Simulated scan of single mutants.
Amino acid sequence: MPRTSDARDKALATAEDLFRRQGFAATGLAQIIEESGSPKGSFYFHFKGGKDQLAAEIAERFAARGVAAIAAAAAATPGDATGFVRLLCAGFAQEMRASDFTLGCALQNIATERAPGDPHLTALVNAGLEAWVEGVSTHFAACGVATPRPLAEALIAALEGARTLARASRSDAVYSAIAESFAASLRSPLGGD
């Protein structure tokens, strides 16, 4: 019977947490190996591409979780663009509080430190963010929003920027401000829901 190991998943989870809390450049492989409890040989067997491979896999996994969260929020708010925005903002605020305002965005941190100099990681980050925008835009369109794509881009940009403000201020108040601002935009004739 083949031996199974969770070393790979532990290493990915640990690396993602560290990339989100302290950034890509500040996170070393030795720290990931130590904190994940992965045997060194197992780690290098699974991640022959080192930190860049970890970053690529984390970008894809983090983006996919974001797509799933957007889809869940959309399913919970059929026809209600304002409720959708409020639900997303509440989710972001809850995550920030739960992490004691320490979690940044894996995609944002990788992009800040590696894009555009690393074409592969840049493409993965861009694809992930584009998938988020597309998910929001699709729900906005289904809700009858007149300008779904620009508002979706603005919402994703606002939510990503809000992580920085929330971390610096140690407050989730910025998410309420985003929710109220978008609620007003969606009520306007140009936003329309």
Rank of each mutant, 00 (worst) to 15 (best):
H139S: 10
P116L: 06
H120L: 15
C143A: 13
C105F: 06
V125L: 07
A141R: 14
C143F: 00
L124I: 11
W132Y: 08
P119M: 11
A141E: 14
Q108I: 11
P119H: 05
C105A: 03
G144A: 06
V145L: 01
G144L: 02
A111L: 04
P116F: 03
T138C: 01
V125D: 07
H120D: 13
E130Y: 07
C143N: 00
T138Q: 12
I110Q: 05
V125I: 14
G117N: 09
C105D: 13
P116D: 06
L107E: 00
V133R: 15
E113K: 04
L129R: 14
T138P: 05
H139I: 10
Q108N: 08
G135Q: 09
G135T: 12
A131G: 14
G144P: 04
A127T: 13
L129G: 15
V133D: 06
T112E: 13
N109P: 03
A141G: 08
C143Q: 01
I110R: 00
C143I: 01
I110F: 02
E134D: 15
V125R: 10
N126F: 11
H120P: 04
T138M: 00
E130D: 15
E130W: 01
L124A: 12
L121I: 10
T122L: 02
P119K: 08
R114N: 08
A123G: 09
A141L: 09
E130Q: 14
E113C: 06
V136G: 04
G128R: 04
C105E: 03
L124H: 10
Q108R: 08
T122E: 13
L107I: 04
N109T: 10
R114V: 01
C143T: 06
A142Q: 12
A127K: 13
L124W: 12
E113W: 05
S137H: 03
A106S: 12
L129N: 15
N109F: 06
A131E: 08
V133T: 12
E134Q: 14
F140G: 05
A127S: 14
L121P: 11
L121M: 12
L129F: 12
G144T: 00
T112P: 02
P116A: 08
L121S: 12
A131R: 07
S137T: 01
A142T: 05
A115P: 08
A142E: 13
A141F: 04
V145H: 00
E134K: 13
A111F: 03
T112Q: 14
V145P: 00
A106K: 01
V133E: 13
V133N: 05
V145T: 07
A123Y: 02
H120F: 06
W132G: 15
E134S: 12
N109A: 07
L124R: 15
A115V: 04
